[in-house]
Design a protein around this nucleic acid. Structure first.
Lengths: 199, 199
DNA sequence: TTATTATTATTCGGATTGGTACAAAATTCA
DNA sequence: TGAATTTTGTACCAATCCGAATAATAATAA
């Protein structure tokens, strides 16, 4: 159905290119990733980058949203996990750890936690985006604890909101620790302790 | 008895200048802080900066060590606090929160957690410095929990090392959340929950 | 074929980057 | 007073930065 557009066809896949841009920003952050880096990574030239995604910051924010979508999906998956809360949270942290330890050039932590805070102090848009994601993480985890309460798998007098903030804190820390070079065993130790105390 | 040196006297105070450099890096991170920024902040000109502190990265690492010294002092103070563990940890988090929320241009979080991770992936020296501080935080908190155990104020079968990692995670999260714009009340809620579950 | 449209590729420009060379300035020592 | 020494201030360097202007290219529409 989609009629072919009029002019010269694109020689790149916008989705793929955005993915490559995300990888670049993830590796080096916003300030240290140059347009040349982005052009090389995406295989696009500068003007095409602009036409497709706007300026550098817009491209960063679009990459940010892609990653945030993954976070959102993970939270939804956690909330819908039918296994016991302890098991579900364990899996949630294990999957995050796996991602944080991945990377073509060594562990790179979390795109958001490791690259956005440094920019947040001087850029309102990035701070806003970061703030939104942190809040979504808290909200997602709160829903998880609320569900556990309602299923009787967590004490009724538990403050789900407060516990969610603590569970989120563990995620933030895993992100930073991974990028700092901590081993999988160390990260798992933190996750295990968190699951043990939180659920 | 320090004899006066031979040549033209310095027109700056190295300690004060380093403090100003730290402020600059804290505000904008390593990559986004230019030598012009640093020269303006310290009141020194570029060649003097080089003579005094070496290149930009060395200056960043020196600033890093200054801040790390503060972290170390806070951990020592926590360990030596004679009040009940719960009170001591409360104060520890409250003091950190105060620092994270401070800043001439709004809350700036933690110098280390908010500026080092982004560089850590591509710079071995910065990753090493970050890794060292994270480890020191864990160690310092572990000593605190060990002491609480030995005083009988914490269950004997508590894994102090694991609990320290979780306590450190809260600190990391406070650092990021503050820079993202969370209010003091929200940060305190996280700290309160942490103290409640950890001690 | 010819016009239209959209994208690509090359090039450029002004600003900024980290770092340095060199001469002027300010001090102590002889 | 003058030589020696250290720091300062200006100017400069090559490289890189982000962004845009322009022209060539490749497709559809008429």
């Amino acid at each position: 159905m989609t009629k072919k557009p009029r002019g010269r066809p694109r020689s790149y896949d916008p989705q793929k290119a955005l993915g490559k841009a995300l990888e670049s920003f993830w590796a080096s952050g916003f300030a240290s990733t140059s347009l040349d880096d982005l052009a090389a990574a995406t295989g696009m030239n500068r003007p095409s980058l602009y036409a497709a995604f706007g300026d550098k910051k817009q491209l960063y924010l679009k990459s940010f949203e892609i990653f945030a979508g993954g976070v959102h999906a993970a939270l939804t998956s956690l909330k819908e996990d039918s296994s016991p809360p302890r098991k579900a949270l364990e899996r949630f942290y294990a999957e995050a750890t796996e991602i944080y330890l991945s990377g073509p050039d060594g562990p790179r932590g979390c795109f958001i936690i490791c690259t956005a805070p440094v920019e947040a102090a001087n850029d309102d848009d990035i701070r806003e985006a970061l703030s939104t994601v942190l809040s979504e993480i808290d909200k997602g985890l709160e829903a998880f604890f609320e569900k556990a309460k309602s299923k009787g798998e967590l004490a009724k007098d538990t403050d789900a909101s407060a516990r969610a903030k603590l569970a989120g804190a563990v995620l933030h820390s895993l992100a930073v620790r991974a990028r700092a070079g901590e081993t999988k065993q160390e990260l798992q130790k933190l996750a295990r302790e968190a699951v043990s105390l939180l659920t």
